[in-house]
Amino acid sequence: MQDFRYLGDDRRAELEKYEFMMGEARGRLAASLDCLTDALIMVGQHGVYCTSNRNPTVPALDLQGVMVNLNGAKELVSAVMERMRAEREAAEKQ
């Protein structure tokens, strides 16, 4: 496995587990999805304390932008994983 220097030891172990269970490509996507989910959780928690000056019931505008982009990235990764699964199942049926 390549050295992913920005991953901590716990993430590397998780990545190895996913790669073993799902194969290299799908495993890496699954580990990426977990990282994106954790980032969304952290941004969401920060949004509770960093609210908009105009509307204190919503997160600051910059945090809203980050959350939109993280959610979009999660949707893209999920779509790729689903397509790979469907292609694998179609190939197995032939």
Rank of each mutant, 00 (worst) to 15 (best):
M1H: 04
M1C: 08
Q2Y: 06
Q2H: 08
Q2F: 08
D3W: 01
D3T: 04
D3L: 04
F4I: 14
Y6K: 07
Y6F: 15
L7Q: 15
G8P: 02
G8E: 12
G8Q: 11
D10R: 13
D10P: 06
R11Q: 15
R12I: 12
A13H: 11
E14K: 00
E14C: 00
L15H: 02
K17Y: 08
K17E: 05
Y18F: 13
E19M: 08
E19H: 05
F20Q: 11
F20Y: 13
G23N: 09
G23H: 05
G23D: 05
E24Y: 01
A25M: 06
R26D: 01
G27E: 01
G27N: 02
L29H: 05
A30M: 00
A31I: 06
A31Y: 04
S32Y: 12
L33V: 02
L33N: 09
L33K: 14
D34R: 12
D34W: 02
D34F: 03
C35A: 15
C35N: 10
L36V: 08
L36I: 09
L36N: 03
L36F: 03
T37E: 13
T37N: 13
D38S: 09
D38E: 15
D38I: 04
A39I: 00
A39H: 12
A39Y: 09
I41T: 09
M42H: 15
M42L: 14
M42Y: 10
V43E: 02
V43Y: 07
V43G: 00
V43R: 04
G44I: 02
G44V: 03
G44Y: 10
Q45M: 00
H46M: 14
V48K: 14
Y49D: 12
Y49P: 00
C50K: 04
T51P: 02
T51R: 15
T51D: 06
T51S: 12
T51Q: 11
S52C: 14
S52W: 10
N53V: 09
R54C: 13
R54S: 15
N55L: 10
P56Y: 09
T57E: 10
T57G: 01
V58N: 09
P59R: 02
P59H: 05
A60F: 12
A60W: 13
D62H: 09
D62Y: 03
D62P: 04
L63G: 07
Q64R: 08
Q64I: 03
V66D: 01
V66G: 00
V66M: 04
V66E: 07
M67N: 07
L70C: 08
N71F: 02
G72Y: 15
A73F: 05
A73D: 07
A73T: 02
E75V: 11
L76V: 06
L76E: 14
V77K: 01
V77P: 03
S78H: 13
S78P: 05
S78V: 03
S78I: 03
A79F: 10
A79L: 12
A79I: 06
V80D: 00
M81V: 09
M81I: 10
M81K: 00
E82S: 15
A86M: 07
E87I: 00
E87A: 00
R88F: 08
R88L: 12
R88K: 13
E89M: 06
E89Y: 01
A90G: 07
A91M: 09
E92P: 03
K93R: 11
Q94A: 05
Q94N: 07
